[in-house]
Write a protein that binds this DNA or RNA. Structure first.
Lengths: 232, 232
DNA sequence: GTCAATACTTTGTAACGACAAACTGCGTAT
DNA sequence: ATACGCAGTTTGTCGTTACAAAGTATTGAC
């Protein structure tokens, strides 16, 4: 584990435990470095890390202040499945449809691949406990990862990607809303015309290869997106 | 302008112009530094900057590759007003209500201030062109910034904050959806029960002071949120 | 011909030093 | 008493050097 990360972790613990209160100024980096027996660049890097996570704020000529005692989790590339696991809501997935087919124009342009390229097109219903929560459509290029019904029933899509060495790195999401169609309402156990949250996303890996296109609808009565941002 | 930033800008231009194509590897940092006559840390910092913006990807032992020719704008703390200006959609704001009042419990807990602290509570209707687009409720602590109707009619809230030296730095947003009430529908020129996108946000400045709490509803038929993320 | 060990390339981490820029606050002069 | 300037503090930038770690390619042995 890198030194700068160890330093950052120690600082973070002190702040989370409240030993350095909100608003308090932390030691200046020169002294801190000397006291911990590391160099100033290493200390700077540790502090910078916490600044990026929204815990600290630095001002030239003034010092470094604690602005928030908890880590403000950055916007994460996590899947609904991961979110539910983390929230103890017992996800279950029903694979309604799975087929290998040529990419439609919409899918092809979202994934930036040639129309007609083979993709796995899946339709899944995600439950939280006993209640349906989301209806999810995804396209995954066949040469990225072949998928089976059993895999998808037991694991989240992102978990499967990661397990095969595919790490989503960059994504663009569009979040909107609309009313449920009769079919959607029936599937999701909502009334016709109920509000649904819609999310479409394309995710790329570190090599710039498109991994996944998704078009999901969530029951607005049961789900919302939480986003933490910090701007430079 | 810092040296590392100049280097980053030069690299970015080369990539945007396509002189370094997607997938191509850029010169290794040692050579690049020597050729440009700067130190390796400076070069590293420039490259790091572009990596964080999603243009480049680095792999130890391999090199640095271009993954996207355009800058992927990070998630931004911008207001709807700014977005509309950028999109040439001629925003206009109607201030429906403005009053100085003690913070309600909801507002106080969102802003992390004592209940009863005086805040300016405003209700605004935002138009894009001739059409209503969003109904916005905001609370701004009185000691952060006193506001007048005229200010708000002519400028976006974030513009006013910035103009007074208040820079939002960190925010948490929750995006959801629900059906319009009769009153909301009438105000927004939608049918009763139409889907609305809801967004509640609290924004803090660099000093950790809460600047603003907002609870907005958007016409889902006319607006959606676009979010670009990159995960480390 | 195939496999494994080795050498090479490239990025990652860490150290030290020097100066610049921004902000604070004290002290002095008017 | 107020205002201005200067000194001190703290972070920001930039340079240099050295070694570590990871991935790639080459070479050698069997």
């Amino acid at each position: 584990m890198p030194l700068y990360f160890q330093v950052a972790t120690r600082l973070q613990e002190l702040i989370e435990k409240g030993e350095i209160g909100v608003g308090a100024r932390i030691e200046n980096e020169v002294d801190l470095a000397e006291r911990l027996g590391v160099s100033r660049p290493t200390t700077r890097r540790a502090i910078q890390y916490l600044v990026e996570r929204g815990m600290l704020v630095r001002k030239r000529g003034v010092g470094t202040q604690v602005v928030h005692p908890k880590v403000r989790r950055p916007v994460e590339l996590s899947s609904l499945y991961d979110d539910l696991i983390a929230g103890d809501r017992a996800p279950r997935t029903e694979v309604l449809h799975l087929e290998v087919m040529p990419a439609t124009d919409t899918v092809a342009s979202a994934l930036e691949i040639a129309p007609g390229t083979l993709v796995t097109w899946i339709e899944r219903l995600r439950y939280a406990g006993a209640e349906p929560l989301a209806l999810m459509h995804n396209a995954i290029p066949l040469d990225v990862l072949p998928l089976t019904r059993d895999d998808l029933a037991a694991h989240g899509l992102y978990e499967l990607l990661r397990r095969n060495g595919l790490t989503p790195r960059i994504a663009t999401q569009v979040i909107g809303a609309r009313s449920a169609s009769a079919a959607e309402a029936k599937t999701l156990d909502e009334k016709r015309g109920a509000s649904l949250l819609t999310m479409t996303r394309t995710a790329w890996d570190a090599g710039g290869r498109a991994l996944e296109y998704g078009s999901h609808v969530y029951r607005a009565s049961r789900y919302s997106f939480e986003i933490n941002l910090s701007a430079g």
